[in-house]
Design a protein around this nucleic acid. Structure first.
Lengths: 138, 138
DNA sequence: CTAATGTCTCTAGCGACTAGAGCTTCAAGA
DNA sequence: TCTTGAAGCTCTAGTCGCTAGAGACATTAG
């Protein structure tokens, strides 16, 4: 049985984050000592590892809850898990696309700066003020 | 003088968003009609366009406030504006990097799915449960 | 004049935590 | 056994950038 601090160190999560996951129902309530402190078993530590990994990959809490639910009903089809992963992948790809365009635009803006007075000549300001300066949509 | 709805249509912002920008001090309080409705002048519409564009490029509100402050003091150096843009560019690049790695990992995970029972064979689950399955850091 | 649309303020909610106050419990050393 | 300091507890509120909704008032077109 591990204290919350020990589990935090093991999983890389922060202590309040673990409590938060319990609060939102991602993790069942652990046992408690007589003095009301949480004590986690191996299973729960593993689940927290799963959650951490999924969060690192950007899965929203809700999707993780669905995945955990699937894991607890092994009779269900793997297709649902694949679908969740697929959705996440598409989400990431969309963000990538958008960020790629932003990067192009911003580097164009940032490069154009002359470093002189801001008044009429500042390229950054002009670019932001007038969308027509832009190279592409965003 | 334009009503808030008209300005919203002109700038592409939503009505509550415009009120929000006023609330957080990004935009000065506009004139009001006798009936207490906001009426905006050309200058303010322009500024809202500036804000919209900067937000679309991902600048946080605080950075936009700093840019507006610079715009109102044309004697200051353009270097500060360039610095803000540079910071934003770096931020975008960091996110891009991270997302690129996530995309690789997720597409590997999503592709590996066999579509059969979730029990022992689900690749999605196994990948999430065990970080050792991963091809790279994230 | 009426009806429809627009606008007002205010509060609360989103997601995923994070910070802090004020208290209690635990574990290790003297 | 006692003490001390770290770690834990609950609760509330704050973060960011909006968004939604309630209930009331203003404006405008026909």
């Amino acid at each position: 049985m591990f204290s919350i601090g020990t589990v935090a160190r093991q999983t890389g999560l922060k202590v309040p984050t673990i409590r938060y996951y319990e609060q939102v129902g991602l993790l069942g309530a652990p046992e408690r000592t007589e003095g009301n402190q949480r004590r986690y078993g191996k299973d729960q530590v593993e689940r927290l590892g799963f959650i951490k990994h999924a969060r690192d990959l950007g899965f929203p809490i809700e999707a993780i809850a669905a995945l955990i639910d699937l894991a607890e009903h092994p009779d269900r089809s793997c297709a649902q898990a694949a679908e969740i992963a697929q959705r996440q992948l598409e989400d990431v790809r969309e963000k990538l696309e958008r960020l790629t365009r932003l990067e192009a635009e911003l580097s164009r803006i940032a490069k154009g700066c002359s470093g002189t007075g801001v008044a009429d000549t500042c390229y950054v300001m002009a670019s932001l003020a007038d969308h027509a300066h832009c190279g592409s949509e965003h």
